[in-house]
């Protein structure tokens, strides 16, 4: 594999609680707690997990919007951790973020043109002043918007169109990597498909690599080459699409897959159901040992005492953080359907 465009080593991000001048820190939110990731050029890495698992924080740290508490992010071979000010801003160009909520991620007082042009005003070397307007129109066209609408304000657009504006803004800097933080979760199904297709097209045309973060397993499955499953700030399973969706080893991955609603009433009652009890514990005070053990049906003494490391399991590139991984795949038609079309 060619040199990775984005790499994270031992990434940790804690947020102090109640801290501040003259106030004692009451605790730490362990949002991201030791994550290693590698992203090759043109690759799509899906990250799935439930709310509070740290996937959004991970997105911000990867895009250098937040400084990690420990660990290092390397972009195209350059570690960004020690950069400050102008150099940091220069380095951020290669990794751009697409936000979840198209209603809040665009400045309501700026026209679409001003929003997409802002990157050029910050990085003046990108395009000479005279070319900027043309570049903005070109970018709007690339994401499927009518460039004649560039004088409009965000509220005059629908959710899907706003998301396209956000993507155009991110593309202006010619990034190598787009970190998409739940880019379609706020959109309706039909619009969601438009954006998913757009992201796929851009990946092919511009040779982009994606970190695609979502709680929606089916969207991630559609787009991702490799998938990382996060639970309480840690990656609990990582592997190719086939490994994770059909040969899941971690009980949490298995529960997620089983809970994923499948749009086929014929499968009702035919799928193996794993309904977890309880909800993810608080990242302020994660359980000792394996952080999943309080909800796990296989947990034993060892799981309660000793946190499992993410270790290679079965094929190449498939790793699971579980003391007793077992192969499992969602029973019923999902698999049959796939083999039928292959």
């Amino acid at each position: 594999m060619s040199a990775p465009v984005l790499e994270a080593r031992g990434l940790v991000k804690y947020y102090p609680i109640g801290g501040g001048p003259l106030r004692r820190v009451a605790g730490q939110v362990k949002a991201v707690d030791g994550v290693d990731l590698t992203l090759g050029p043109g690759e799509t890495l899906g990250i799935v997990g439930e709310s509070g698992c740290g996937k959004s924080t991970l997105a911000k740290v990867l895009a250098a919007l937040e400084r990690p508490t420990a660990g290092e992010v390397t972009v195209c071979g350059r570690p960004v951790g020690r950069l400050r000010g102008r150099a940091l801003r220069r380095a951020r160009r290669d990794v751009q973020l697409v936000f979840q909520d198209p209603y809040t991620s665009l400045d309501p007082r700026m026209t679409i043109e001003a929003i997409v042009r802002e990157p050029f005003e910050i990085h003046r070397d990108l395009a000479p002043r005279g070319d900027r307007r043309a570049r903005v129109r070109e970018l709007l066209e690339t994401v499927g918007l009518n460039p004649d609408h560039c004088g409009r304000y965000p509220h005059q657009f629908s959710g899907g169109q706003r998301q396209r504006v956000g993507i155009a803004r991110a593309l202006a800097l010619r990034p190598r990597v787009l970190v998409c933080d739940e880019p379609v979760s706020a959109l309706d199904v039909s619009v969601q498909a438009q954006i998913v297709n757009l992201l796929e097209r851009l990946r092919d045309e511009l040779d982009l690599a994606y970190v695609f973060i979502s709680h929606d397993l089916s969207v991630v499955q559609h787009l991702a080459d490799r998938i990382a499953v996060m639970y309480l700030g840690k990656v609990v399973e990582i592997g190719g699409e086939d490994d994770v969706y059909r040969n899941a080893g971690h009980p949490y991955t298995q529960a997620l897959l089983s809970a994923m609603p499948v749009p086929d009433p014929g499968l009702r009652g035919r799928r193996e159901e794993i309904v977890l009890t309880g909800e993810p514990p608080s990242p302020i005070d994660p359980p000792r040992g394996c952080s999943f053990h309080p909800r796990c049906w296989k947990a034993d003494e060892r799981c309660r005492a000793e946190p499992p490391a993410l270790t290679a399991w079965r094929g190449a590139g498939h790793a699971v953080a579980c003391h007793r991984p077992e192969v499992w795949s969602p029973a019923g038609g999902t698999e049959g359907e796939v083999s039928a079309t292959r």
Binding site: V189, S190, A193, V196, S218, H222, E241, V338
Partner: peptide, 23 residues
């Protein structure tokens, strides 16, 4: 029919999803 086509499904991986044009 279009809504059903717009849902990502395992066998559609790597293919474009059907979309409903417009809003």
């Amino acid at each position: 029919r279009a809504l059903l086509g717009a849902i990502p499904r395992p066998h559609l991986r790597g293919k474009r999803l059907a979309v409903i044009p417009g809003a």
